[in-house]
């Protein structure tokens, strides 16, 4: 049986609302480091819409080449090896979108992000969403849903992280949450009722304290 080829991250067109949220957070004319930048779609938009000086980090060769072809500065690096080599506070923003749940050691990477960027923006799927939780509870099996689209035994999403988890985690590592945006049914909101149970995606802007 041939192994299924996984689409590693939620495709861009399915996360457009998320990208809009991230773009809204970023001040024009700043430097942005996009970790797991894919084909450079976010950085191309940031360059065109916000005059951002961007740099992407990506491991997939085809996507790295796409970035280069689009004139996006890119580096072939494995995020699981951290951000060694990037000087302290060398970017205004470090972005990690749709990737946190796939990093072997998120603590190390997020600490590195706080070191390298003045602000970090992290967007990730929320496993505590009530539909997922309910299915988990009723069927007793790891649900396969839009935000976690792969079966547990063959999935790049090695962490089933929740909004609540993330808040505690940032607190534990001494970071500061500056902004929280929750996406439910393709609609972003900052002050929604019961985000941990209702949000499909969380998008946090954090900084070192």
């Amino acid at each position: 049986m041939s192994e299924q080829v996984l689409e590693i991250r939620t495709p861009f067109h399915e996360f457009e609302v998320g990208f809009n949220v991230i773009i809204d957070l970023i001040t024009p004319g700043t430097r942005v480091l996009d970790l797991g930048c894919g084909s450079g779609t976010l950085l191309a938009r940031l360059r065109d819409e916000k005059d951002v000086e961007g740099c992407g980090v990506e491991l997939d060769q085809e996507k790295v080449i796409r970035c280069t072809e689009r004139g996006i500065r890119v580096m072939t690096l494995d995020l699981d090896h951290g951000l060694e080599g990037f000087p302290d506070l060398s970017y205004e923003y470090v972005v990690l979108s749709r990737t946190l749940q796939q990093i072997i050691n998120p603590e190390r990477l997020v600490r590195e992000m706080l070191r390298v960027g003045s602000k970090s923006i992290i967007a990730f799927p929320n496993f505590a969403n009530w539909k997922i939780a309910l299915r988990y509870l009723l069927t007793g099996r790891t649900p396969i849903v839009k935000t976690f689209p792969h079966p547990w035994f063959n999935s790049p999403d090695i962490h089933r992280v929740t909004i609540s988890d993330f808040r505690h985690f940032i607190d534990d590592i001494g970071g500061k949450i500056e902004k929280e945006i929750f996406i439910t049914k393709d609609t972003p909101g900052t002050n929604i009722f019961w985000p941990n149970g209702r949000a499909e995606w969380g998008c946090f802007q954090i900084s070192a304290q």
Binding site: T68, V74, T76, S90
Partner: peptide, 16 residues
């Protein structure tokens, strides 16, 4: 690459 990064130069890096 590391040296260029440390010196804050404009650097791209591709391992093909």
């Amino acid at each position: 690459v590391r040296a260029l990064q440390a010196a804050k130069k404009h650097v791209s890096f591709v391992e093909v």
